[in-house]
Write a protein that binds this DNA or RNA. Structure first.
Lengths: 229, 229
DNA sequence: CGAGCGATTGAAAAGACTCAACCACCGTGG
DNA sequence: CCACGGTGGTTGAGTCTTTTCAATCGCTCG
């Protein structure tokens, strides 16, 4: 909590300005959205919000990666989504009314802006077009999540790992994939040891490279073949 | 296709009128929404729409149950949701823009009204409040789906079955649960044979009763204990 | 009566997990 | 500068849950 550092920030200076869900609003109401924001620094493993608490606003990810997860009975994390810069995090709970159903934690050092509930809702109220964007976004995620469920229920761990690696490749873009083995295993829904053994296989098969703990994808095509469909 | 029978129908006469997502609209614009609808009969196993096709409207379920599912690599179904009377089906794809990501098929003989795309969208355009309802509904489902993922990834099949039975109990309400063993297995994400063996266990433990192929839940409480969290 | 689908049972195989130990790296403090 | 502790990574062996395969049963329908 106390190790956040604050900085003044302008939405229109944000490199993700035009990509985010709120861009439509920002374009039309620059004066309003350009009130100075406070960007917070979050250290690796610092929590944005936790399952069960109540939302006070949304988080706009300016830099870094954030994991969104739920916990099973024994407290084991299941990572549902890994958010990258430009994404808005934690707005679903604000609409569904109740508490957060998921938790969010910084995977690496992050810069994140906070938009309070009242402001966020008033942004939406004054700009109906955003509402459509939100519906579209939610619908899309719902479809993706259906596929996620099917994968986890029917594919072997080898297939799931291959599939997950292609997703992680997209999330990390130019960068090498930098996740602890445990986080990666919790994303795929398998045991850490199993993950490590399979990564070794994939490396020997020339599908990926491993430097230190970081992964680089060599052949996304072959991974997709293994993943199936 | 050809075995549907048609019947004139009034929304305001529909017993689900006030419960559905569109109720708000219906209340305020009775004259409009009360244009005579065509209610179709769907026989068991008849498809409402299939993954990959493009939406032409939404389905309003008046009577019966419908399974919503995706197919994995080998064509095996993964049932994502079982819809009951009063629910509106297939509106997500209309917002996300593209094709259906899921399929929907009648689990039993159903009566279903169809609302064309243009009409549905105009209903929404003329009534902003509905948009909020939709956002709330989508957000809620997204949260539920996160829990579904965690369950399927972390719980044993026994725990998952217990949990699924409580859900099915809610869906079927007063009625006994009436699903083929295969559909039930595809909902839980396990093999049919495993399901049958576990059902036998549950029956011997006095948690459920089995008549013919129909299930009756005896102790939802005990099932929830087994399911955990 | 025979075909066929869904339900059931049994036995064997396999995929993945758990447990336990060990390693490697890194920052800290003496 | 080095010993120490801690975290995260790796490996091996054994276990076990769940699946797969094969066969049988029972009911319904033409």
């Amino acid at each position: 909590m106390s190790d956040k550092s604050h900085k003044q920030f302008l939405c229109s200076n944000c490199e993700w300005h035009k990509l985010s869900l709120l861009s439509d609003f920002c374009e039309r109401n620059v004066q309003d959205s350009d009130r100075h924001r406070i960007s917070n620094h979050y250290k690796r493993n610092q929590s944005l919000f936790a399952e069960g608490s109540y939302p006070r606003g949304v988080f706009c990810l300016n830099h870094g990666k954030v994991k969104v997860f739920t916990r099973g009975d024994e407290g084991k994390e299941q990572i549902i989504h890994i958010a990258k810069a430009g994404e808005i995090i934690g707005f679903r709970a604000m609409f569904s009314g109740g508490e957060y159903k998921v938790s969010a934690t910084a995977l690496e050092d992050c810069t994140i802006c906070f938009i309070g509930k009242e402001e966020f809702l008033s942004i939406i109220d004054t700009n109906p077009a955003i509402r459509n964007d939100i519906i579209r976004e939610l619908s899309k995620e719902l479809g993706e999540r259906a596929i996620f469920i099917t994968n986890i229920a029917q594919k072997t761990v080898r297939e799931r790992l291959a599939f997950a690696l292609t997703i992680l490749g997209d999330v990390y873009g130019e960068d090498q994939i930098n996740l602890t083995r445990e986080d990666m295993a919790n994303f795929i829904g398998i045991a850490t040891e199993t993950l490590i053994r399979l990564l070794k296989d994939f490396k020997e098969e020339g599908l990926i490279d491993i430097h230190n703990r970081k992964l680089e994808i060599i052949s996304k095509e072959k991974l997709l073949v293994i993943a199936g469909k």
